[in-house]
Design a protein around this nucleic acid. Structure first.
Lengths: 214, 214
DNA sequence: CTATGTGAAGTGTTTCACAGCC
DNA sequence: GGCTGTGAAACACTTCACATAG
């Protein structure tokens, strides 16, 4: 086995490097060293080298990495040649914002459908996407080749929505509801709990100077 | 030194336990074992026990933990008796959604001010909060005792905003911009990069069955 | 008999430090 | 000289397994 095990933490960092390289390329910078790339991303130089070394040898001793070459390599590794169709379930404040969030499309993620349980919202349009009833989800997932589902419904509804998504064949879920979802092993769930993130920040605020003892 | 080092990963989990305990208390469930709490949060029983044991001995051998007691203990540890004032910078789609996101208030986080660089937005109201010019930030932070800042501006503006927040005395920042911020050591930054999270999900989608090699 | 609390073992990740190359 | 690629060491976190308590 030639291939070492790649830490789960490495992949998100590769996306960070890629963004930085895209910026650097725009400024016509030709080469960059691991330590400089690390400075720009708040990571250590050895971290940068190790992450990249999992996938091959792309650098040149003495001068560093070619920006354009490394950018291409990362795009290949990360599958940026492909685009993925995304559906959102729950078009409240947050869901609506995500629906219109321009950052996704730039990264090869296409928001192609939106669903809501609220009959009053069904049929309304948001940025060229017509909100559909949740009953239409399975059919739309197939028809539009959707592979990622975003859950942006209130906590108590989230598990039910997850089951509908899984039944429709979705294997990648981004969950904004503050509950722990139960899904089959083959389904990948990424929890993004905004309150919890903020709360965690505030914990450190509360225990800034004192000890974190009870 | 009586106090063992607490893993950084433990704190977010304590918030997860607390939410579950709040649910359990609402259903009048009196006691819970580590393994049952683990099942409900998708964590292992030993993980639950270890996390709690960092802060003391709250369980009873043979029967488990008292729901009400543990809930109280966690609220104390996590500083849920306090509330924190939050300001948001950047009232676009995402910032606007966060501004009106009801989940924060429930968790002791009060959104009290909003700022935007766009003069057209300044003076407008969103959910009882009047959008202010960024120049007013330092004064408002002091006047309203704001301790957490949320950055929801486009990437290129984020670093500048971070500097303004830091200069105003903010030590906790939640950053939604897809850039790595440079801030002094005493400032706590939590990056929430929605595109990156989705991209990471899609990476695993792309490499589901094949090897993740280049 | 059930379930906690906890050292010890195991696993995963990051940093160190240096040989080798440009 | 400067910088990469990489084993080895250090560190961090999770799981195991069991003595101990109700």
């Amino acid at each position: 086995m030639n291939q070492k095990k790649i830490p789960k933490t490495t992949i998100p960092r590769l996306f960070v490097y890629l963004r930085e390289l895209t910026d650097l390329a725009a400024y016509n910078i030709r080469t960059i060293s691991s330590s400089e790339l690390g400075d720009r991303t708040n990571l250590s130089d050895s971290q940068v080298r190790k992450d990249l070394a999992y996938f091959g040898q792309f650098g040149t001793s003495g001068s560093g990495y070619s920006v354009s070459e490394l950018k291409l390599v990362l795009e290949k590794i990360l599958g940026k040649d492909k685009t993925w169709n995304v559906a959102i379930v729950g078009v409240g404040h947050l869901g609506g914002a995500l629906l219109t969030y321009s950052g996704f499309r730039r990264q090869g993620l296409c928001m192609v459908a939106a669903f809501d349980m609220d009959a009053a919202k069904v049929g309304k349009k948001r940025e060229s996407i017509t909100i559909q009833s949740i009953e239409e989800l399975p059919g739309t997932v197939k028809k539009k080749d959707i592979s990622i589902g975003i859950i942006a419904v209130p906590g108590p509804e989230a598990q039910k929505v997850a089951e509908i998504l899984v039944a429709a064949g979705i294997e990648c879920i981004m969950n904004f509801a503050p509950v722990s979802l139960n899904v089959p092993e083959n389904v990948n769930v990424k929890d993004v709990d905004l309150s919890r993130e903020l709360e965690t920040l505030s914990y450190y605020l509360a225990n800034r100077n004192g000890d974190p003892k009870i």
